[in-house]
Design a binder for these strands. Structure first.
Lengths: 360, 360
DNA sequence: TTGAAAGCGCTACCAT
DNA sequence: ATGGTAGCGCTTTCAA
C-alpha cells in the first residue's frame, strides 16, 4: 500500500495521494488526475481502474494543494455582527442552504458590531483567499475605505441587510425606510398618537428606520418629538433600559416602535414591570420577526424581513459573481417587508399579515 | 512594483508575494521568509528592511501555500445540529472566542440533526484538512463507525453536549442525567405529583434526561407512567404538539419537564391556549437557558447548561490536542448544571438560582 | 490516449 | 547571517 509518512506529523499526513494510485496502477500521476476529474481524454478502461483503486484506498483530493494551483478555495467568508441574534443566525442558515450544495464552505466570523474587528476579520479572510464574502457590515457611515479595499482586491462580495450610504456594491436586504414607515403607520392605524421610537445605532438600518418613522409621522400630521426618540443599541437589555427612560416622560407614549425585535421585547418587559398594559396602554412593534417572537410574554408584532431569504439571495448573487467573474454594475435585491400583527399592538381589528405595498 | 498577473484570474491573483519583496530588496526569498517569521538568524537591519517593504506593499502571507508545506490549515470544523437553536449558537460563539484569538478560523456546518448529513459534512471537512473538529453529534446510539473513522484519520476532535454511549473520545458537556434529575426534583419540591416529560430524540441528551427524570421520580416514591412521557423532537412546534397530546390525558399532569427550552416554550403556548394556568395548574421547566427565556410569555424556569462555557472549554481542549498532538486518554469535562427558577414553575418560594450539588 | 516538465507560494534542510 | 535546492500535492501546458 506504500506511502509511509513520518509519525506524529499533523494534518493529513499519511493520507492517500494521487501518486499512490498511480504507482499501484503503473500509470502516471497525470493520468490519475485526469481520470478522477472526468477529463474526456482518458480511456474508459483506465478511468474505471483509477476510480476503483481510488475508492479502495479511500482517496480524497487534497484541497489545499488543489487550491494552490487553481486559485480557488471554495470557501466563502461570512461576517455578521452577532451570531446570537437569531436574525443573523437565520441569514447564515439561508446562505448555507445555497452555498453548501454548490460545494462551498463557510468561514463564519462575528464582528461583535465593531467596525475595527470587522476590518481585521476581513483582512484575515483575504489572507485565506476566500473566493467571496458575505457581509452584514458594522461600518458606521463613512466606512467607505473598507469597501474600496475590497474593490481593489477584486474580491467578489455582497452586502446584506445593511447598505452603507454611497456604497457602490451588490446588496440584498429590506428597504429600511419602508420598515420604519410600515411599523409606524401600523401603530397610527391602531389609534396611537404619541409614538416613540427606540432607535438603533448609526448604521444604515438604524438611520433608515428612524427616517421612515419620521416620514410616517409627518404624512399623518403627527408631531415629531426628539424626546420620544431614545437610543437602544441592538439587544433586549438596551431596549429594556431605553424603555425605562421613556416611561419617565409625561405624557407617556401610547405606541413604541423598536429598532428590532430584541429591543422591542426588552421594552415590553420594562413596560409590564411598571404595571402598564401592552397593548392597551402602550402598543409595541419591532422588526425582524425573530423566530421566538410568537412565544414572548406578549406575542410581538413585527415587520418580517424574510431573513433566510436575504441569506439565500445574497449567496446566489455571490455565486454568480464568483463563477462568472464579470462584475456587472452593482445589483440591489430588495426584499419586501411584511407587517405581522400579533398581540403586542392589536387594539382594533387588523389582518394578521399585510404584504408590503410599494411606498406611496 | 513588479508582479503583473493575468487579468481576470480569480482568487488572490496579483497579490504581493515574498518573491516581490525579495526582488525589490535584492535578497533571497528565504531571507524574506525568515525575516517575516521572526527567525533569529536574520540581522536586525535586514529584518527591518523586509518588514518595512512588506508593509509598504501590503504583503499578506498566502495561507494556502503555507498550509501545503506546514500541513496545518489553522482551520477548525464546527458541526452542530442547528444554528438557529440559540443553545448551539451560543456554543459556537464560545468556541469562536477561544479559537479566533489563537489564529484559527471556524468552518461551520449544520447537520440539521441528520446523522448522514453529519457524516458527509465531516468527510468534506477532512478533505479540507481542518486541523481539528468540534462536534455536537447527531448520531443515534451506535454511531460508533464515524468515531472510529476519525480515530483512524488521527483528526483531533472534541465532542460537545452529546456523548454517544461508549464513545472513547474527548468530551465537554453537562451530565444529562443530572439535568433530568434536577429539573424533576425541582418540580417535586414545588408540589407537583403528576409530572410529565416531553422527551427528546434517541440521542445521549434525550436518553440521559429521561433517565434522570425516572430516577428522580423513583427516589421520591412517585409512580412512573409511560403515557406521561411524550416525544417532542427538538423545537417549539414539536413541544406545542406534544403538549396538546398531554392535555388530553386525565388526570392532567401538574408539572412538565421539557427536553429543552424551545420544547418547554412550545408546551407553555399549548397550555395557555387551552385556558390552563402556568404555573398554578401546570408548572413547566426546560433546559438550556436560552437567552430569551426571560422574555417568554411566562418566563421559563430552566436548567442552565452554561452553553458558552461548553464552547470555550471544548475549544481549549481541542487547541491542546492540536498543538501537543499527543493524545492522552479521553478527557471528560463536565460542566455543572444550574437550576434557574423563573415564573413558569414558581409555586412556593425557592431561591432564584441553585448551584448544582454533586449527585447524591 | 498518455505523460514529462514546470510551477503555484511557501518552508525545511543544509551549505556557504 | 544568507541563500540554494528540493519538495508539499496538485494542475496546466505541451509534446509524444
Amino acid at each position: 500500500m506504500g506511502n509511509v509518512a513520518g509519525p506524529g506529523k499533523p494534518g493529513r499526513a499519511g493520507a492517500v495521494r494521487m501518486k499512490d494510485i498511480a504507482r499501484d496502477l503503473g500509470v502516471s500521476v497525470m493520468t490519475v488526475s485526469k481520470a478522477l476529474r472526468g477529463h474526456n481524454d482518458i480511456s474508459e478502461a483506465t478511468r474505471q481502474r483509477v476510480l476503483q483503486r481510488a475508492r479502495q484506498l479511500g482517496y480524497q483530493p487534497n484541497w489545499v494543494a488543489r487550491s494552490l494551483v487553481s486559485r480557488r478555495t471554495y470557501m466563502v467568508g461570512l461576517v455578521i455582527p452577532d451570531l446570537m441574534h437569531s436574525f443573523f443566525a437565520e441569514v447564515a442558515k439561508g446562505a448555507a442552504a445555497v452555498l453548501e450544495p454548490a460545494g462551498y464552505h463557510i468561514v463564519i466570523l462575528n464582528s461583535e458590531e465593531d467596525p475595527q474587528t470587522e476590518e481585521r476579520q476581513i483582512g484575515a479572510l483575504l489572507a485565506r483567499s476566500v473566493d467571496g464574502l458575505l457581509l452584514a457590515s458594522a461600518q458606521r457611515i463613512g466606512g467607505a475605505r473598507l469597501f474600496r479595499m475590497l474593490e481593489e482586491r477584486k474580491l467578489p462580495y455582497v452586502l446584506m441587510d445593511r447598505l452603507p450610504a454611497g456604497a457602490r456594491a451588490h446588496y440584498v436586504g429590506c428597504e429600511d425606510e419602508r420598515i420604519g414607515e410600515m411599523a409606524t403607520e401600523h401603530l397610527i392605524r391602531q389609534g396611537c398618537r404619541r409614538i416613540a421610537h427606540l432607535r438603533g445605532p448609526d448604521i444604515p438600518t438604524g438611520i433608515g428606520r428612524l427616517r421612515g418613522y419620521r416620514r410616517a409621522l409627518a404624512r399623518h400630521g403627527l408631531p415629531f418629538a426628539t424626546r420620544y426618540v431614545v437610543r437602544a443599541q441592538h439587544n433586549d437589555e438596551a431596549g429594556y433600559l431605553a424603555m425605562q427612560k421613556l416611561l419617565r416622560m409625561r405624557p407617556l407614549p401610547d405606541g413604541v416602535f423598536g429598532y428590532n425585535d430584541p429591543v422591542a421585547a426588552g421594552a415590553i418587559r420594562a413596560i409590564l414591570e411598571a404595571g402598564i398594559r401592552v397593548p392597551e396602554d402602550i402598543a409595541v412593534i419591532g422588526s425582524g420577526n425573530v423566530h421566538y417572537s410568537d412565544l414572548l410574554r406578549v406575542p410581538l408584532s413585527t415587520i418580517d424581513q424574510n431573513s433566510s431569504e436575504i441569506g439565500r439571495r445574497a449567496a446566489e448573487l455571490l455565486l454568480e459573481l464568483i463563477e462568472n467573474k464579470r462584475t456587472p454594475r452593482p445589483r440591489r435585491v430588495v426584499i419586501a417587508p411584511r407587517l405581522i400583527v400579533r398581540q403586542s399592538s392589536r387594539r382594533i381589528g387588523e389582518p394578521e399579515a399585510v404584504s408590503a405595498t410599494a411606498p406611496a
